Amino acid sequence: MKENVARIRRLLEESVREKKQLDAEERSRRAFELFEFNTSLPAVDTSARARGLRTVARIVGWYAWAGPEVARQLDRGGVATVDDLDDDQVIELVARMRQLEECAQEGLDSPDAPVAR
């Protein structure tokens, strides 16, 4: 009986010690998150090309159009990645994605769709 009581006390002491350790870890984690939140963000490339690529990424992410439209522009440019597109090709891709976004927002068919009869 005494062994059981001693064992239960030991288990309770261990759980309290673990709880204190977790609380300290949680406080450290929160302090780091607060520090990370309050530190300045890295500089953002504000070139027209970078803004265009971010626009494409936003539209592609929002409408889940990652495959066909981007691949179409890559094929037209004869390149393997979006980073390999030249500035004019990026401008074309941005214009195309904005056109498709407008069609989606207005409830219109794709500009490539056959004419309805």
Rank of each mutant, 00 (worst) to 15 (best):
G78H: 04
F32N: 06
E106T: 09
Q99S: 10
R76L: 15
L85V: 05
E13Q: 14
V90W: 03
A71S: 12
L108F: 10
G77D: 01
Q105G: 03
R58N: 09
R51E: 05
L74V: 03
L41A: 15
E92Q: 08
S28D: 08
E102Q: 13
E18D: 10
K19S: 11
L11E: 09
G77I: 01
K19L: 14
G107V: 06
A80F: 02
I8G: 03
M1T: 14
G67V: 04
A104M: 12
V44F: 02
V70D: 06
E3K: 15
D88T: 07
A31N: 07
Q21R: 15
D87G: 08
A113N: 08
S47A: 01
L53F: 01
S15Y: 10
Y63S: 00
E33G: 03
Y63G: 05
R10H: 01
R72F: 00
E36F: 11
G107Q: 12
I91V: 10
R17L: 13
R30E: 13
L53G: 00
R27M: 08
R117C: 11
R9Q: 07
E92L: 10
D75H: 06
G107H: 11
T39Y: 10
W62L: 11
D75R: 12
R117E: 14
A50M: 03
S28R: 15
V94T: 02
Q21N: 13
G77R: 02
R76D: 04
N38W: 12
V56C: 03
M97E: 02
A113E: 13
K19Y: 15
E102L: 12
V56W: 04
A48G: 10
K19F: 14
P68W: 14
V115F: 11
D112F: 14
L22C: 04
V16W: 09
Y63F: 10
V16T: 10
